[in-house]
Structure formats: structure tokens, C-alpha cells
């Protein structure tokens, strides 16, 4: 056996283990774009919320009920845009790198991500229905952070730290009820943008052959 043969064997083992156990078709650009959508959404949300003062109180309902459909619409648009962006970029990267998108790791990543996230989403709706709007922002951040940490085992490990960042912001948010939108914008907007830039320069550039 020659030494270059041994090197080649070790390289082959590493590539096969990585490729078959982790979902590696994630793109940093999509994280940055998602952050931008979230910031735009938070901005629109902020203007909707601040417009509430000028609505004459003709209905004998709590103030926020009038703006709930608008806020929900903005949130839904941000969510759908984010999901389609991440799917589009992942499909593209998978194709470029010749990975299978329908492989075991991709399936496991999405299952482990969406299971806690869906629970958090339904829980948020329950909170909304019950009128506990103050805790929705921290609940979203916390469940999102836990979903990321859960999925990080099957994809890039650095997603774990993004999840931790969301958890910290979620906990801060829980202690400062009035700052929900601000912390939401930081967690879903700024944190994603920072992570996307980090990912692009530190991970994609290095592995991009």
C-alpha cells in the first residue's frame, strides 16, 4: 500500500460518512434573505401596530383584535416567502453539488426541524385565541431556537449556535413584554443576516470547489 492510496481511502471514508449522514445543501444566501424578509415584516408590523391609536374605538372589543388579521397576513407572507426561499436555494445547491435532495439526511433534517416548529406554531395560535399576545413573541423565538438545535444534529453543526442565539433572545423577550417586536426583529432578522454572512464566508467559501 502506498501513502497516497491511504490518504485517498481516508478521504473517501470521510466524504461518504458526511454525505450520507448530514444534510449539506444549505445556502447562506437564503439565511440572509430570510433575515431581510423578517426585518421588512417587522417594519410593516410596527407601522400596523402604531396605527392602532388612530383607530376610533367604535367596537367594544380590545384594541388589538382589529389588527390581528393584518399582522397574521404579514406573518404568513414572511413565513411562505422564507420557506420557498430556503427550499429554492437548497434545491439549487443540491443540484450543483450533485447531492440527492430526497435522501435520508434531508428528510431527517426537515422532520426534526418542523416537528417542534409546528408545535410552537399551533401553540402560538392557541395563545392568540386565548388573548395572551404578550407571550407570543418569546414563544416563537424559543420554539424556533429549539427547532434549530434539534435539526443541527443532521445538518451543519453551526446551526446549533444560531439556535442558542434565538433561545437567548427568546428568554430576554420573555422578561421584557413590551419589547416583543424589537426582539422578534433581532432574532428573526438580524441574527439570520449575521448567520448567513458568517456561513457564506466561513463555510461555503471554504468548501466551494
Amino acid at each position: 500500500m502506498k501513502d497516497d492510496e491511504a490518504f485517498e481511502a481516508v478521504r473517501e471514508i470521510r466524504v461518504m460518512m458526511e454525505k450520507s449522514s448530514r444534510f449539506l445543501s444549505f445556502s447562506g444566501t437564503s439565511a440572509t434573505l430570510i433575515g431581510a424578509y423578517a426585518l421588512a415584516g417587522a417594519f410593516v408590523g410596527h407601522s400596523i401596530i402604531s396605527s392602532v391609536r388612530y383607530v376610533p374605538d367604535v367596537y367594544s372589543v380590545p384594541m388589538w383584535i382589529g389588527i390581528v388579521p393584518d399582522i397574521a397576513l404579514v406573518a404568513a407572507i414572511v413565513f411562505v416567502l422564507s420557506l420557498s426561499t430556503i427550499l429554492f436555494f437548497s434545491f439549487r445547491k443540491a443540484k450543483k453539488m450533485n447531492y440527492s435532495f430526497s435522501s435520508g439526511p434531508a428528510y431527517r433534517t426537515f422532520l426534526n426541524f418542523f416537528l417542534p416548529l409546528t408545535v410552537g406554531g399551533i401553540f402560538s395560535v392557541a395563545l392568540l385565541v386565548a388573548g395572551n399576545i404578550g407571550v407570543i413573541a418569546p414563544v416563537m423565538l424559543l420554539f424556533y431556537g429549539l427547532s434549530l438545535i434539534n435539526a443541527s444534529k443532521y445538518t451543519y453543526g453551526s446551526i446549533f449556535w444560531l439556535g442558542c442565539g434565538e433561545l437567548v433572545l427568546g428568554l430576554i423577550c420573555a422578561f421584557f413584554p413590551g419589547k416583543g417586536l424589537l426582539l422578534w426583529a433581532m432574532g428573526f432578522g438580524i441574527l439570520h443576516i449575521i448567520y448567513g454572512i458568517y456561513f457564506y464566508f466561513c463555510v461555503e467559501r471554504h468548501s466551494g470547489k
Binding site: E12, I13, M16, M17
Partner: peptide
């Protein structure tokens, strides 16, 4: 080698 790596 690849088969065994994947199955590990």
C-alpha cells in the same frame, strides 16, 4: 470502502 463508511 464507501459502502462500509455509509453503513457505519
Amino acid at each position: 470502502l464507501g459502502i462500509m463508511s455509509v453503513l457505519m
